[in-house]
Nucleic acid binder design. Structure first.
Length: 592
RNA sequence: GCACUCAUAGCUCAGUUGGAUAGAGCACAGGUUUCCUAAACCUGGGGUCCCAGGUUCAAUUCCUGGUGGGUGCGCCA
């Protein structure tokens, strides 16, 4: 619908160019959109304001010139010039009819863009394999997956990647905890030290280990038991993470191991060498930004400054970072950042067009460093997108659900899915802009009613399905091959025209949500559309029902319902939320 | 101190990359509903869009400077 209108506007514009009344290229950010105030017409266009200055004419005069041509389009019934120079247009009924038919004909492709040859990588979750996923990982998981789905719908070739931080001190702590639990299983007394993992899952890891190796590690040297325990721990945790992700409907295309693919492969040493060769490093005890050290004197960083003994600095400050960063210690060991740089270098070598990184907001500090590090290697850091997800505080009946890692207190992501279901969990974590923190009481999604966003959306879909099913029982079938013979010009009610216009904007919503990596836009779009339908449904239920004696009118409305259902289904699909044809309701009818 | 991020109705939050009279849910007040699955639908009250400048035909939106909340600031990961 919008496509046709834009096309006709282009034609009108070039006609203006041809007769010399206007000059200049067709402006890039022309908007044709529904005006807030419906009295202004079906759509409004702002082109006159955009090009007025270049043509040295008043916006309203420019508008008049365009209107003269645009009115010739078969899609346009009338255009009015209003306000500072808006063009308010009313569309021809054929345009509405064609839009509806097109929605149904496109089926599950409706809303998606044609495949392009762009490749995008979405890296998300990437939780340390030191334990199961918990609440703190939920938002990143769902936002990352929804972004990936959005890009797929927008026509991109998408690859989902999980970066496994299976190197470093945390793994050693895990290994020693596993070993202690292993000894405990063999009757030896143990005592966990500060920082080790007290949670019960480590016992499960130890049990698995005992089954695999029996008691052979009991008397073994640390050089034997440590790698074995580490490996068992990592393997068990990754499996646990995979299982949870599977429950969440999330599947990765690749799992990237820090230990194997960066350290063991020599990639980390390689990236340092690349920086050395490029002349972006220097050896020092403190970074060049002495002032930075001073002004951080009051910060947490100050308590670590004695540890600084001099190492190899990367000049990230030359590429937009706040200060230079150490990438190799004086003793030759690399730091976390070095591996991260090597990882992103690896990503760039795999040559995607765009890299989406979904991080928790507490990792926001990485953004500038990685950007700077990639720029220093000569890569285009603009291809990197960072989605920082903020904390969501989940409540249950006013009580906060804790993420705390203290034993027995962890609220695992698994538990959340078990409690409220994948659809509700997705809705909760996707309904708000990722970079805004918010509170949510999960008792809301266990109710039935408008306050429950999942219920509201799914009920909308179920209602459509229900109406269609009832119609079918009466012999009213919307068959694809007969779409064109349905009298869609009978859809004259203002609510019907409004709904069709809303439906028609769906592809644009998907496209823009993908571009902005903002899945929440889709939820808001769906909710608004459903609200309009429910309102319409109720308003006319005593007259002008969807299924009525008037067969032609019924068929027209059923086609509209089918188009709505298709849009809802595809919209929910792109969020990973189920679109049921029937909802089992808990509550009994009131007053029955 | 510096960086990132947020600030919109009593509460939780949208606001379509700068558009016309700023919206939704909850809560509150009133009303409708024997019906195609629902405590659903309608109406109403409720706003200094944190403050002050700037850019623009047009700013809740972009820029600068403040204020307030969150996060980060290590040769930890």
């Amino acid at each position: 619908m919008l496509v046709q209108l834009l096309e006709s506007l282009r034609e009108a514009y070039s006609a203006c160019l041809d007769d010399g009344s206007l000059q200049g290229a067709f402006p890039e950010h022309v908007k044709i959109e529904e005006p807030r105030n419906r009295a202004h017409g079906d759509f409004a266009c702002n082109i006159a304001m955009l090009i007025a200055k270049a043509n040295k004419k008043a916006p309203r005069d420019v508008a008049a010139l365009i209107v003269e041509q645009w009115q010739k389009s078969p899609w346009v019934d009338s255009i009015e010039i209003a306000g500072p120079g808006f063009m308010n247009l009313r569309c021809n009924e054929d345009l509405f009819s064609q839009a509806l038919i097109s929605i149904v004909e496109h089926g599950e492709k409706w809303g998606s863009s044609p495949k392009n040859d762009k490749r995008v990588m979405v890296e998300f979750v990437s939780a340390n394999p030191t334990g199961p996923l918990h609440l703190g990982h939920a938002r990143g998981t769902f936002v990352g997956d929804a972004c990936a789905r959005l890009f797929e719908a927008a026509g991109y070739n998408v690859s989902r990647e999980y970066y496994i931080n299976d190197a470093g001190q945390q793994m050693e702590v895990l290994a020693s905890t596993v070993y202690k639990r292993y000894r405990e299983l063999h009757g030896q007394p143990i005592e966990l030290s500060e920082g080790e993992y007290p949670a019960a899952y480590v016992i499960d890891i130890a049990k698995m280990l005992r089954e695999e190796v029996g008691n052979t590690l009991l008397e073994a040297d640390e050089s034997l038991w440590r790698p074995r325990c580490r490996e068992a721990g990592v393997r068990w945790n990754i499996q646990s993470i995979r299982d949870t992700l599977g429950k969440c409907g999330v599947h990765f295309d690749s799992w990237f191991s820090e230990q194997a693919q960066l350290h063991d492969s020599g990639a980390v040493a390689g990236v340092v060498e690349a920086y050395e060769n490029a002349g972006h490093v220097y050896r020092a005890s403190t970074s060049r930004q002495h002032e930075d050290q001073k002004r951080r004197a009051e910060s947490k960083a100050s308590q670590f400054k004695e540890l600084q003994a001099g190492g190899l600095f990367l000049k990230t400050a030359d590429f937009g970072d706040d200060e230079d960063r150490v990438i190799r210690r004086a003793d030759g060991r690399f730091v976390y950042l070095t591996a991260d740089l090597a990882y992103h270098k690896d990503k760039f070598e795999r040559d995607f067009d765009r890299y989406i990184n979904v991080f928790g907001a507490d990792h926001g500090g990485h953004v500038k460093r990685i950007r700077a590090g990639m720029s220093a290697l000569g890569y285009n850091a603009d291809k990197l997108d960072f989605v920082l997800v903020q904390i969501v505080r989940l409540m249950r009946e006013g009580q906060e659900l804790k993420i705390s890692k203290r034993a027995g207190n962890v609220y695992a992501l698994d538990d959340l899915i078990d409690e409220i279901g994948n659809d509700a969990a997705r809705t909760v974590f996707l309904m708000r802009s990722a970079n805004a923190q918010f509170d949510f009481d999960i008792s809301t999604v266990l109710q039935e009613g408008n306050a429950n966003p999942v219920f509201y959306m799914q009920m909308g879909h179920a209602r459509c399905a229900s109406v269609l099913k009832k119609a079918e029982a009466q012999g009213l079938n919307v068959r694809e091959e007969e779409l064109k013979s349905i009298h869609l010009d009978l859809l004259k009610l203002p609510e019907e025209r409004q709904l069709i216009k809303d439906l028609a904007t769906f592809p644009k919503v998907i496209q823009e949500a993908a571009e902005a990596t903002e899945p929440h836009r889709v939820i808001h779009f769906l909710r608004e559309m459903i609200a309009g339908f429910h309102s319409y449904f109720s308003k006319y239920k005593s007259q002008e029902r969807i299924i009525s004696e008037d067969r032609d009118k019924s068929m027209a409305r059923l086609l509209m319902v089918l188009a709505l259902k298709n849009t809802l289904k595809n919209g929910l699909e792109v969020l990973g939320i189920a679109a049921p044809d029937w909802m089992e309701l808990k509550q009994e009818e009131v007053g029955g």
